[in-house]
C-alpha cells in the first residue's frame, strides 16, 4: 500500500475537497503534517502568523488569555475545520490563542509559500480567498447567534 500523498490528504479535508486539482497540488507543495499533543499551544496572540491549519483529527480551543483566568475559550475547532486566517491579512499576527484540547493532527499550510503563488494566479487566489471568507462567515454567524442568547432567559 502506497502512502497517501499530500494532495490526497487535502482532497479528504472538507475545506479543500471541491478545490481544482491544480490548486490542491500547489497548496500541497506548501504543506506538511503536524501533530500537537494535548495541551500544546498552537498559536499565541500577537505572534507572527506564518501559516494556517487544516484539522484532521482532534480538537483545538481558540480563546483569549485573561489575567487571573488563563485561557478563556471562545470556540472549539474540530476535524474538518480550518484554524487561522491571520496569515492572509496584515499585520500577519495571531489575534487569539489556541491550544490542543487533545492530540491534534493537522495539515499546516505555509503563508510564505502560498501568498506569492496566489499573487501570480489571481483565479486561484480568488478561489482560496472565497473559501476563507466562507469560514469567516460561518464563525461570524455562529458568534452572532450566540449573541442572541437564544437559550437564555427572556429579558421581559
Amino acid at each position: 500500500m502506497r502512502p497517501i500523498t499530500m494532495p490526497e490528504e487535502l482532497a479528504h479535508h472538507r475545506f479543500f475537497e471541491k478545490f481544482p486539482d491544480e490548486l490542491r497540488r500547489r497548496l500541497a507543495e506548501c504543506s506538511n503534517n503536524v501533530i500537537f499533543e494535548k495541551g500544546v499551544t498552537v498559536c499565541t496572540e500577537g505572534t507572527p502568523a506564518r501559516s494556517f491549519f487544516a484539522i484532521r483529527t482532534g480538537r483545538v480551543s481558540v480563546g483569549v488569555h485573561v489575567p487571573s483566568r488563563g485561557l478563556v475559550s471562545l470556540e472549539t475547532l474540530h476535524r474538518g475545520d480550518i484554524m487561522g486566517w491571520s496569515w492572509v491579512l496584515p499585520p500577519y499576527r495571531w489575534h487569539f490563542d489556541a491550544i490542543a484540547l487533545e492530540q491534534v493532527r493537522a495539515i499546516e499550510l505555509h503563508a510564505d509559500c502560498i501568498l506569492p503563488y496566489l499573487e501570480e494566479d489571481p483565479a486561484a487566489g480568488f478561489r482560496l480567498m472565497t473559501s476563507v471568507a466562507t469560514i469567516m462567515e460561518e464563525r461570524i454567524d455562529s458568534a452572532r447567534m450566540r449573541l442572541l442568547d437564544l437559550f437564555g432567559e427572556s429579558d421581559d
Binding site: 480538537r59 470556540e75 472549539t76 476535524r79 475545520d81 460561518e138 454567524d141 447567534m145 450566540r146
Partner: peptide, 16 residues
C-alpha cells in the same frame, strides 16, 4: 472553566 467540550452553536457541529 471546567467545560472541556465543544464551544459554539449546534450548526457548528453539523458539518462535523
Amino acid at each position: 472553566r471546567d467545560w472541556h467540550g465543544s464551544i459554539g452553536i449546534v450548526t457548528n457541529e453539523l458539518p462535523r
